[in-house]
Simulated assay, not measured.
Amino acid sequence: MLFPRFRHGLTLLPLALLGGCDMVVMDPSGDIAAQQADLIIVSTLLMLIVIVPVILLTFFFAWRYRQNNKDATYDPEWDHSAKLELVIWGVPLLIIMALGLVTWISTHKLDPYRPLDRIDTNRPLAADHEPLTVEVVSLDWKWLFIYPEQGVASVNELVTPVDVPIRFHITSSFTMNSFYIPALAGQIYAMGGMQTTLNAVINEPGVYEGFSANYSGAGFSDMRFKYLGVPDDEFQAWVDKAKQQGSILDRPEYLKLAKPSSDEPVSYYSTVAPDLYHAILNRCVVEGKMCMDEMITRTDSRD
Rank of each mutant, 00 (worst) to 15 (best):
N214C: 06
M26D: 08
P165C: 04
R123G: 00
Y215N: 12
L84W: 12
Q67A: 15
D163H: 05
S154A: 15
Y254D: 04
D117L: 05
L46H: 04
Y65V: 11
Y113F: 03
V286L: 12
L17I: 13
S247M: 11
E264W: 06
A16I: 15
Y189C: 00
A98Y: 04
G219Y: 13
V134T: 05
F168Y: 15
I181S: 08
H169A: 09
V152W: 03
A279R: 15
E130N: 11
N156A: 08
G9F: 13
L125P: 04
G288K: 11
N177M: 10
N122P: 00
D71G: 08
F61G: 01
L255H: 03
P14W: 11
E149T: 10
G192W: 03
I55T: 10
A258R: 12
T299S: 10
S154P: 04
R114V: 05
E135S: 07
S172I: 01
G246P: 02
S81P: 03
S247N: 10
P28I: 11
P231W: 04
R7N: 08
T107F: 02
L12T: 15
S216M: 12
F6W: 13
L13N: 08
V87Y: 12
L184D: 10
L158S: 03
P252E: 05
I96Q: 06
F61Y: 14
M176V: 12
Y113H: 09
Y254K: 05
Q187F: 07
K226R: 15
Y227L: 13
G210E: 02
G193K: 09
F235G: 02
E85A: 14
D22I: 07
S106L: 02
E130C: 01
S173Y: 13
H8A: 14
W141F: 14
R123I: 09
I146T: 09
A62N: 11
R7Q: 13
D22C: 13
L132T: 02
N177I: 03
P28R: 12
G246M: 07
L99F: 03
M97V: 15
Q35S: 06
W104K: 11
N122R: 11
Q245P: 00
Q35N: 14
Y254A: 09
D250I: 03
